[in-house]
Design a protein around this nucleic acid. Structure first.
Length: 185
DNA sequence: GAAATTTGACCATA
DNA sequence: TATGGTCAAATTTC
């Protein structure tokens, strides 16, 4: 077992919960995840790891206490696997740490989730997209945008998440911005 | 039958 | 002592 030791290499994102009523289901991000645990302490939290045994990438999905319609997804580790929808990927661990450390403000942090998945529902790259980001949720998430710029991490996160999920028509993998291709694998 | 999910238990850390 | 993270067995689904 590897108890919580590895604090480095985390990337925390916030994404609107799907309107399907399954707020525990994370969005498609180009990888196939396998659920390996769940915790009901405080807020329910689900643990996923890559279906590829060789891959040590993990992610945690947790509902926000102040806004159950928002999911906080924490990516951890790097992908050493190859998927059908994406090339070899591996997360830029260093920047992820910064994001994980700053993206904790529920009010201002909510806006970072606004760009998420807005194009995902119409993308051919995500065939199993489960109707994410309903109108109501979208309004809630997008409406929390503070308005004052000057947030480095927020801005970075917004750009990051925008890159991740606003891949409308782009031939590049949406995850390339966050999980760049790894030719040497 | 294989793969994925659920659930409880175990252990480490704060 | 409570919480967090993971494992493993049981169950469910494909």
């Amino acid at each position: 077992r590897t108890p919580r030791k590895r604090k480095e290499g985390r990337l925390t994102l916030r994404t609107p919960a799907p309107v399907t009523g399954k707020v525990d289901v994370p969005p498609e991000d180009g990888y196939t995840w396998r659920k390996y645990g769940r915790k009901a302490i405080l807020r329910s939290k689900s643990y996923y790891r890559c279906t590829h045994k060789i891959c040590e990438a993990k992610k945690k999905v947790q509902q926000l206490d102040e806004n159950p319609f928002i999911l906080e997804i924490t990516y951890e580790g790097e992908h050493t696997c190859q998927t059908s929808t994406t090339p070899l990927l591996s997360p830029p661990i260093t920047v992820a740490v910064a994001a994980a450390g700053e993206n904790r403000d529920p009010g201002a942090g909510g806006d970072s989730a606004s760009p998420l998945f807005q194009a995902g529902t119409s993308s051919a790259s995500q065939p199993k997209t489960d109707n994410w980001l309903g109108d109501e949720v979208q309004g809630t998430a997008a409406g929390t945008g503070g308005g004052d710029g000057g947030r480095d991490v927020d801005d970075w996160l917004a750009d990051l998440t925008d890159s991740m999920f606003n891949f409308s028509g782009s031939s590049d993998s949406c995850m390339d911005s966050i999980f760049p291709p790894r030719p040497g694998n």
